[in-house]
């Protein structure tokens, strides 16, 4: 599949790759004609991979909390990044959304009445200078 052209570089040979695929497929057709072998192994590997992720992320919070506790213990503080109980119910979210909505509506009404003048300060540049931009009349 790979043909060696230098000591460190290998070039992918598509034709050889297809040849390998056909050979393997032929082998599978003989050994596992209904595909139950690949199906079983495939499902086991997919489950194992995602199970690994599950275990890792299940324990990630605990590890982070542990590290934080060690750090805070050294400083004599007690900080926790445990967010297990930091849960907002749908009602709370709805109340916050409603409050924000009403606030923004109110803001809009006020805004339409308020005239705002922004002071704009720009640094001087001869390229935008009014003196050079206007025609200078010669003084008689």
């Amino acid at each position: 599949m790979y043909s060696q052209i230098t000591d460190s570089v290998a070039v992918f040979d598509t034709a050889a790759a297809m040849e390998t695929i056909h050979e393997n497929a032929h082998l599978f057709q003989e050994i596992d004609p209904i595909g139950i072998g690949i199906t079983s192994i495939g499902m086991i590997v997919v489950f194992s991979s995602l199970l690994l992720l599950f275990v890792a992320f299940k324990n990630l919070v605990k590890v982070l909390n542990y590290i934080k506790r060690i750090k805070s213990g050294k400083k004599g503080e007690s900080i926790s990044i445990e967010h297990e109980n930091d849960i907002h119910s749908g009602e709370v979210n709805a109340a916050i959304a409603m409050a924000l909505y009403l606030y923004s509506q109110e803001q809009h009404d006020q805004e339409s009445l308020v005239l705002t003048i922004n002071k704009v300060a720009r640094t001087y540049s001869p390229w935008s200078s009014k003196i050079y931009g206007l025609r200078q009349h010669p003084r008689a």
Binding site: G42, V46, L51, L53, F54
Partner: peptide, 20 residues
């Protein structure tokens, strides 16, 4: 809710089922 990851694995049955 990491346990929901496993549902993503179970649905891959479609791939291997279709293979057979």
């Amino acid at each position: 809710n990491p346990k929901l990851i496993l549902l993503g694995a179970a649905a891959q049955l479609g791939i291997f089922g279709a293979y057979t």
